[in-house]
């Protein structure tokens, strides 16, 4: 039964675990969790999907699923956000499996950023480099993409990333190293193929 008497005017002073306990019966408490994590989850999903439409659709699914399952949530010492990120990761993974054609990159924010810039030629080059880098990131295996997003967008420490990904801190460091090496190799290949020019059908 819904505990209406437990509702409060403000949830600001509660930590996540207290909020989760309340949210099992009180939607307003869940609303506070939503406020705390919407931007993080949206950012994560947006960078994984590459477009606003899918990011909004999947972000909504993440919170709907979280709301539906919060009654069964058990505090096992991991941060609440680790649970949310796992839901987001699973939903994005399912979405990617369902996609017959993979979209490569979200252009909208890059275009917006470009418009603010001064030198068009430099911007075009920067935009191309950015596009190549993001395309290379999206070619990485799922777990490596997840690692980069948690590390750069969320700026999480390795221990927290490990909690979300189910790895030790050392394993996260190692995976990060291998991810950077893979990105470097991928970008080198792109750079090499871009430097090959054809004149009248002849490679020069």
């Amino acid at each position: 039964m819904r505990n209406f008497f437990a509702r409060r005017d403000s949830y600001d002073d509660l930590d996540d675990s207290e909020l989760v306990a309340l949210a099992k019966a009180d939607n307003q408490a869940f609303g506070e969790l939503y406020s705390r994590y919407l931007k993080k989850i949206y950012s994560y999903v947006y960078r994984r999907t590459g477009n606003t439409h899918d990011a909004e659709d999947l972000t909504a699914k993440v919170f709907m699923r979280a709301l539906a399952h919060i009654g069964a949530y058990e505090d096992r010492g991991l941060p609440f956000q680790a649970w949310l990120y796992r839901i987001a990761h699973n939903i994005v993974a399912n979405w990617r499996r369902d996609q017959s054609k993979h979209k490569i990159i979200a252009l909208d924010d890059y275009v917006a950023r470009s418009l603010q810039s001064e030198a068009p030629e430099r911007l075009a080059q920067e935009s191309e480099e950015t596009t190549q880098l993001m395309a290379a990131v999206r070619r990485l295996p799922e777990d490596r993409q997840q690692l980069l997003l948690l590390k750069f967008i969320e700026q999480m420490p390795n221990a927290e990333i490990g909690a979300i990904m189910g790895r030790t801190e050392g394993a996260v460091k190692s995976l990060y190293h291998r991810t950077l090496l893979a990105l470097r190799d991928d970008l080198r290949l792109l750079s090499d193929s871009a430097s090959e020019r054809y004149i009248d059908g002849t490679k020069v």
């Binding site: 609303g31 931007k39 950012s43 919170f63 880098l133 967008i153």
Partner: peptide, 22 residues
């Protein structure tokens, strides 16, 4: 490149309303 992305205000408000609807 990997910077946070902001959801639109409309989306955030609509989803909140959906979630908090009893």
């Amino acid at each position: 490149v990997l910077t946070p992305a902001e959801p639109s205000r409309d989306f955030a408000d609509e989803l909140r309303a959906d979630l908090l609807d009893d």
